[in-house]
C-alpha cells in the first residue's frame, strides 16, 4: 500500500479534488493496483488522460512523481543508473600517485559517483512515490526485460554496490498507445486497464471543470458533437484534450452556441486531417466545412 486509499470511492473523491474525474471502473482499478502493490498498465488511444492519471494520483497523495519517458534506444544507463566517469577520473587524478589501488577502488564506486536514473531513484526513495513509465510501447523490447525484473521484485542489483531493494514500493503506472503489443510477460505482472473516451456526462463535467466560464448548454452541445465525430470512421479521432481546446476556442471567439458556422470555422481544432474534415462535413451535413 503506497497511497493509502481506503475504498474505490475514496480514490474517485481524492482524484476529483485535484481535478481528475475518473470513471468508476478506473477508480476501482487504481484502488486494486494500490492494494495489491502491482504496477498498473494503462492502454488506450492518445489523449484520454493516461499520463494525467499518474500526475493526478501523485497530486492526490502528495507523492513525488518520477517519470521515465520511453523512446527508441532508451538503455539501462538512461533508465536505471550510470557511473559518473568524469567525476571518477577527477577523483583518481586528485588523489595523486601515493593512494593504493584498493583505496581508490573503494572510493570511486560509492554513492557519490552514482548517477541514479528514474527507476533507481523511484526504488530508493523513502517518501511516497509515483513512478510513471510513459509510452512503454515506444521503448525497445530489451527494456521490457529490464522492467520485468524491476517491477516484479522492486529491486535493482548494482554489481559494485550490491542489491538495492525498495523500502517503500512506489505506485507504478505504465502507459501505452498500443502501437505495438507489449510482451505477455510484462502484461501478466501488471493490472491492465483500457482507458477509452469518457461517457458524455463525464466529458461534459471535464469541460466544465477545465474551462471555467463556459455555459452548460454549450458544453452539452459540444460534447454531443464530439461524440458524433468519434462515431465516424476517422483517421484521427478527437481526444479529450482537443474537446477542451475546442471549448476554449469557442469561448475565446465569444460564440455562445455551437451552430453550423461556428463548427465550420473551428473544426480544425478537433479534426487534424483534411480528409477527416471532409468526411465529417459530409456525414454530419455541415455546409462548407473543410473546403
Amino acid at each position: 500500500m503506497v497511497t493509502g486509499f481506503d475504498t474505490p470511492a475514496a480514490v474517485s473523491e481524492r482524484l476529483a479534488e485535484v481535478g481528475y474525474l475518473p470513471e468508476p471502473a478506473l477508480a476501482t482499478t487504481v484502488f486494486l493496483a494500490d492494494q495489491l502493490g502491482k504496477p498498473l498498465l494503462v492502454e488506450g488511444p492518445a489523449g484520454v488522460g493516461k499520463t494525467e492519471l499518474a500526475k493526478a494520483v501523485a497530486a492526490a497523495t502528495e507523492a513525488e512523481l518520477i517519470r521515465l519517458q520511453c523512446y527508441e534506444g532508451l538503455d539501462e544507463a538512461r533508465a536505471l543508473y550510470e557511473w559518473n566517469y568524469s567525476k571518477q577520473l577527477l577523483r583518481i587524478q586528485a588523489a595523486g600517485s601515493d593512494a593504493t589501488w584498493e583505496r581508490t577502488h573503494d572510493d570511486i564506486f560509492t554513492d557519490e559517483f552514482l548517477l541514479a536514473r528514474p527507476l533507481l531513484r523511484a526504488i530508493r526513495r523513502d517518501e511516497p512515490t509515483v513512478l510513471l513509465i510513459d509510452e512503454t510501447d515506444k521503448a525497445d523490447i530489451e527494456i521490457e526485460g529490464l522492467l520485468l525484473e524491476v517491477l516484479s521484485d522492486f529491486q535493482i542489483t548494482i554489481p559494485e554496490l550490491g542489491t538495492v531493494s525498495a523500502s517503500r514500493r512506489p505506485f507504478v503506472v505504465l502507459t501505452s498507445n498500443a502501437t505495438r503489443e507489449l510482451s505477455e510477460a510484462l502484461k501478466r505482472r501488471c493490472l491492465y486497464l483500457h482507458l477509452d473516451y469518457p461517457t458524455r456526462e463525464r466529458e461534459r463535467d471535464i469541460v466544465l471543470a477545465q474551462v471555467p466560464g463556459i455555459e452548460a448548454a454549450l458544453a452539452d452541445r459540444l460534447v454531443e458533437v464530439v461524440a458524433a465525430l468519434r462515431a465516424l470512421e476517422l483517421k484521427k479521432v478527437p481526444s479529450i484534450a482537443e474537446t477542451v481546446d475546442w471549448a476554449r476556442t469557442l469561448l475565446a471567439l465569444g460564440a455562445s452556441s455551437l451552430d453550423e458556422s461556428a463548427i465550420a470555422s473551428t473544426l480544425g481544432v478537433v479534426l487534424k486531417h483534411h480528409s477527416d474534415q471532409v468526411r465529417a462535413a459530409k456525414e454530419l451535413v455541415l455546409p462548407g466545412a473543410g473546403h
Binding site: 471502473a25 476501482t28 482499478t29 484502488f31 486494486l32 498500443a178 503489443e181 491492465y192
Partner: peptide, 26 residues
C-alpha cells in the same frame, strides 16, 4: 485477491476487478 478486496456487492466493481486482472488485451 482482487475480488476479496472489492467484495461481491458492487457488480461493476467486481467486473472491474476481474477485467483488470485477467483481460490484458483490448
Amino acid at each position: 485477491r482482487a475480488v476479496t478486496m472489492t467484495g461481491l456487492l458492487d457488480r461493476e466493481a467486481l467486473r472491474a476487478a476481474y477485467a483488470a486482472t485477467v483481460v490484458k488485451r483490448r
